[in-house]
Amino acid sequence: MAKRVSASNVTAYYGGFKAIENINLTVEPKTVTALIGPSGCGKSTFLRSINRMHEVLPGARVEGSLTIDDQDIYDRDVDVTAVRRTIGMVFQRPNPFPTMSIFENVVAGLKLNGVRKKSILEDAAEKALRAANLWGEVKDRLAKPGAGLSGGQQQRLCIARTIAVEPQVVLMDEPCSALDPISTLAIEDLMFQLKDKFTIIIVTHNMQQAARVSDRTAFFSIEKTGDPGRLIEYDNTQKIFSNPSVKKTEDYITGRFG
């Protein structure tokens, strides 16, 4: 199920502004990879270019090549919606659909892609909610609006919604930044479990979190404001946090910079 993601010479623009330049990295299947770096260095931009969400913004474009299992997702004849079904995404702020119930939110991806059969939807919903550690809390109120949950529950709802379509890669952009420590732990536990089935790439500003959950860590940085972000160092998390080979990485994780 899980797939290898590899980027070679990925450069992304917002109109005339080059946000990231020449990113090269390969993410192995069934691992958690953390992207860290100072604010504005292009972590979100890189993440969004992996599932072709970058191009949703007017004037935004991506150069270079991004492959999952040797298939270039930027090929001309690739179906964008298929790419996004294969590579799911969880956003920084929870964004449940306000007009839908909890149940409808979880199965939105399936339903809007044409799955109609009630039994299939119900099974998928339960499975996804269990996987997202949310089933116990919401099983009695599935018909209630998704927007009526707490922030942490909403975020887990969005995770359930993402994994309900059974993607092979899951991208998470600071999924815990709005959450309390307990919800954060719940989501970190979740990542451990999901690792069995999915390839996970997570952006985080929390060093401990990166150290706890990830197998590999990529450090991004910019020279100065206005310069494009670059990949500075990419290695096993252990190595990055104990003995980084680039001085800048060490400065960043020890808090001397950024």
Partner: peptide, 24 residues
Amino acid sequence: PLREGAYALGVPKWKTILRVVLPT
């Protein structure tokens, strides 16, 4: 973010408009 949430699930644009944007 609502639109992007739907796009990220692989929902085509026209369906996102019809089923997420318009109802909202």
